[in-house]
Design a protein around this nucleic acid. Structure first.
Length: 458
RNA sequence: GUGGCCAUAGUUCAGUUGGUUAGAAUAUCGGUUUGUGGUACCGAGGGUCGUGGGUUCGAGCCCCAUUGGCCACCCCA
């Protein structure tokens, strides 16, 4: 039998893991610099915690876990199975599955906050870096198992949080050297638009259609709106918006006029204006921030600001980071009026972008700094205490384990692992106590005491 | 969930209108007389050609099914 792994999953080699950890470490450092602390939640949640939180589509993409033991135990007769089956796939699932792999980190976080509300001091700022699973069909930049790196603050209405999240996105991608555009919008603006054109109820259909503007064009959007039952008058009213082009400031002024009659719309504009003004005052390092009226984002728990980040280089056009404000995510778990805002970095997509653009610093390659090359048992025995000494000094080092391996083999090992220095120890070195330190890059070699070697490599 | 393309050593691929023991490069391991890697030369192992069926005297090549991969749509990190 040929070994294989499930569709949409991947193995990561040491070289790949070193690169991935570089990304995770960068993100983690930024999160901590802004006062976020880590939590973890289980890989699986109760199915009831997850269902209904991601919309109709999302429910289908949740990986359900078959009940352990006899998952037929709910049924006493075959008729009952047939009866259950006739209720449809979704209803049938409830009989045989009560757990599922988590689909994102935000909903488990909301569950966590409600469950631990009496231990938490609010506002609560946490970050979480864990894999999530989606039963999606894999394609470019899309996997069935992937890591999300979330930072959320819950229990604070202040827009300072939004501003800081924008700064964090800027910090992460500046460090990673990826040029990005941060697209910002506000669900309240979208609600205002739906209200103004008289199709308040169809907000989801409207936003989903508008979201595709740069992909399918104005005609495509109008077609889709029509297919979703939006009347011609409303579509006509939407045209100035779809066709509008201009700077963020011009967009804001335009929206103020368009949404003059919508209280919620004006509130959204006010929020967006504050975020842009404050961010501009702080100046971003490398990221560009822009107001994108067509940005909608699928997850329907967002109620305020929404963010999406795209790389401004390379071929991956899907978003590598996204987030927004949700006013009542914990309400469904019994804790109302708890506003939160957060972002999620897609580590796997960022990894793909960095690979394509080859943006890794050179230091990311090597882990072992020093390899001991020896000629036999005696030399190995001599080296072990020295190795311990080097390690105690905090230098990553190792000794070639097979005492009788040929020198060529040992050197090749060092070369393959990109170890920058080797120490060669034979009878000469044992007698004098001066070890041959070789710089693998330059080929230079010198005789030094172990103390000098430690000093040099520190 | 819908559609398109693809499937041959670990990897990237070649394989001529169906015709003998399916090749290359690269990687791996070993060697080029035993204290010097990344170069060169020699050698070895590694494939029931994704799987199952069919057509044929004969299938890696043609047909059907199935599974998997890539890509687009849907949706999304």
């Amino acid at each position: 039998m040929k070994p294989s792994i499930p569709k949409g999953t991947r193995d990561f080699s040491p070289a790949e893991m070193v690169r991935r950890n570089y990304i995770f470490d960068t993100i983690k450092q930024v999160f901590q610099r802004y006062g976020y602390l880590p939590i973890e939640t289980p890989a699986m949640e109760n199915l009831s915690t997850l269902m209904g939180k991601y919309g109709e589509e999302g429910d289908k993409l949740i990986f359900k876990i078959l009940n352990s033991g006899n998952y037929f135990s709910d049924f006493k007769t075959d008729d009952e199975i047939i009866q259950a089956k006739s209720q449809g796939e979704k209803a049938f699932t409830k009989y045989i599955s009560e757990k599922a792999l988590k689909y994102d980190l935000t909903v488990p976080f909301a569950r966590y906050v409600v469950q631990h509300q009496n231990e938490i001091t609010f506002p609560f700022k946490r970050y979480q870096i864990q894999p999530v699973w989606r039963a999606d069909r894999p394609q470019k930049g899309r996997y069935r198992e992937f890591y999300q790196c979330d930072a959320d603050v819950i229990g604070s209405n202040s827009l300072i949080n939004e501003v800081e999240l924008v700064q964090m996105i800027d910090d992460v991608f500046t460090t990673l050297k990826v040029p990005v555009v941060i697209k910002i919008n506000n669900r309240k603006i979208l609600s205002g638009i739906a209200e103004v054109i008289g199709e308040k109820e169809k907000i989801i259909a409207i936003t989903v259609a508008i979201d595709k503007l740069d992909k399918i064009g104005a005609d495509g959007v109008n077609k889709e709106l029509k297919e979703n039952g939006i009347n011609d008058e409303a579509i006509a009213k939407l045209q100035p918006l779809i066709e509008f082009k201009g700077t963020t400031l011009e967009k804001v002024n335009f929206l103020k006029t368009l949404l003059a009659s919508s209280e919620i719309g004006l509130k959204g504009i006010e929020e967006v204006e504050y975020i842009f003004k404050t961010v501009a005052g702080l100046t971003l390092n490398t990221a560009e921030a822009e107001l994108d009226i067509t940005l909608a984002r699928g997850l329907n728990y967002y109620t305020g600001a929404i963010f999406e980040v795209k790389a401004n280089a390379g071929t991956l056009t899907s978003s590598i980071c996204g987030g927004g404000r949700y006013d009542d995510l914990t309400g469904i778990f019994g804790l109302p009026n708890m506003s939160g805002v957060g972002i999620s970095f897609g580590a796997d997509r960022i990894y793909d972008v960095l690979n394509e653009l080859n943006l890794y610093p050179e230091s990311v390659a090597a882990s072992t700094k020093l390899l001991f090359v020896t000629f036999g048992e005696a030399e190995q025995g001599y080296c072990l205490p020295l190795l311990a000494q080097v390690r105690k000094a905090g230098i990553n080092s190792e000794i070639y384990p097979d005492a009788n391996a040929k020198m060529k083999k040992q050197m090749g090992y060092a070369d393959d692992k990109k170890v920058p220095f080797v120490v060669i120890v034979g009878s000469d070195e044992m007698q004098s106590g001066l070890l041959s330190l070789k710089n693998m890059a330059s080929g230079e070699q010198e005789k030094l005491s172990i103390e000098n070697i430690i000093e040099k490599l520190k």
